[in-house]
Design a protein around this nucleic acid. Structure first.
Lengths: 221, 221
DNA sequence: AGAATGAAAATCTGATTGATTTTTTCATTC
DNA sequence: GAATGAAAAAATCAATCAGATTTTCATTCT
């Protein structure tokens, strides 16, 4: 486990500007048609599809790693079939997410497609790495991702990372030191930043947690 | 003046998914080539270009409204010529921005391309409308826009709006009531939301200002 | 019954080309 | 040095087609 979109661990293969999952179907809102018995979004299947796409993988790519057929995966992603627990574990491992992520949907209220309450966010990284990231959008997918990130006092990015994404953030609380292409920036409450393509790393040199809003486009989770 | 990206006043004509200004050239970072004497980004010209594009206008479209030639506008946008004050006033009017916006660049430090300090954001809307929006990214353009928005106590969106964008936000302080396609959502500190294509409006029914981070893709400013 | 497969059918994506639009360049005038 | 206008260059768009990806579905498995 122990993910970190703000870290180098996660590597995105997809090209920029593909516009692939730019709010088209991978999203949730809408859910128009009415035949399929299980909704595919805001569900495990929808998550898997969004995750797969954020990596630029095809059904075949993922099916191979899962040692399952493509047809089955297609059905799972569209909610027409349920994956076994073992499959979910494998998927979680592949995407470096806690298994709990797939079961921490917001309660199935009417507001689910639009609103995420502060106390029911889905967390991507578990404690212990010094960084806790949780999703602020109702589901994976869309043109960008908003993440609520808490960097523990003293936490440090294991190694610099580069991603084919555009990223920006805002410091809500505490302070965080960011290194962008070697340059050092001390960000305090109210400061914001943006980068795209640079080599980045971070440290929380303060003695309180740093709380940031971090936006990434296209999504990496 | 009195703009409001969170309001219906601003109408975006561009199609979705064009991927036009998706972090390609409209951005800043880089500034590689070395001939042109004036840098075009982080400058008035760069702003005008980004604004024009966010509306889906061509040089011709804007030149007509400015009653200037296309060649001249091209030069202005690339910093090879300076617009007269009168032109800037017209541009500000066209894009519904305060003239000051074009002169409130961050100080020309090394961090300018990456960081915006809390005390030197560029403000898009002036006081008095109940909504103050300021830019959290170093410049206009890019795949999305992060805005710091303060909704005064009692402020209300003049009329519902629809935009061809994907938008998400996070409540830092206070609370804001959002109407998405008729449904009412009371958002409090720590809550977040996302919508795309729906009809939206808002009110701050609380007695303190609501402070939000608001993300819009593609940019509307 | 529902998971899972495999293969055919449908859909989507990417590359190509040429026509059109948009942008840049530049010699010239204000 | 601003500003124009027209030629040159570059970027965009629509149509097309081949190949890749996804969906569907009849069938088998548990």
């Amino acid at each position: 486990m122990g993910t970190a979109s703000c870290c180098g661990e996660r590597i995105v293969l997809m090209k920029l500007n593909t516009g692939t999952n730019a709010g088209s179907d991978s999203g949730t809102r809408g859910e128009a048609g009415g035949q399929p018995p299980v909704r595919s979004s805001g569900s495990i299947g929808g998550d898997i599809r969004a995750l797969r796409r954020s990596r630029g993988w095809t059904l075949t790519d993922l099916a191979e790693r899962l040692e399952r057929s493509v047809g089955w995966l297609s059905q799972v992603e569209r909610g027409q079939s349920e994956p076994a627990l073992a499959d979910i574990r494998t998927v979680a491992g592949l995407f470096d997410l806690p298994v709990s992520f797939f079961f921490s949907q917001s309660p199935d209220t009417a507001e689910a497609p639009y609103v995420v309450r502060g106390d029911s966010r889905r967390t991507m990284s578990d404690e212990g790495k010094g960084l806790v990231e949780s999703l602020l959008s109702p589901d994976l997918g869309g043109a960008f991702e908003i993440v609520h990130s808490v960097f523990a006092a003293g936490a440090r990015c294991p190694e610099p990372f580069v991603r084919p994404t555009e990223e920006a953030g805002y410091v809500i609380e505490g302070s965080l030191t960011l290194f962008i292409d070697g340059e050092r920036f001390e960000l305090n409450q109210g400061d914001s930043f943006r980068f795209a393509g640079e080599t980045v790393s971070w440290v929380n040199e303060g003695d309180v947690p740093a709380v940031l809003i971090w936006v990434i486009a296209p999504p990496v989770y």
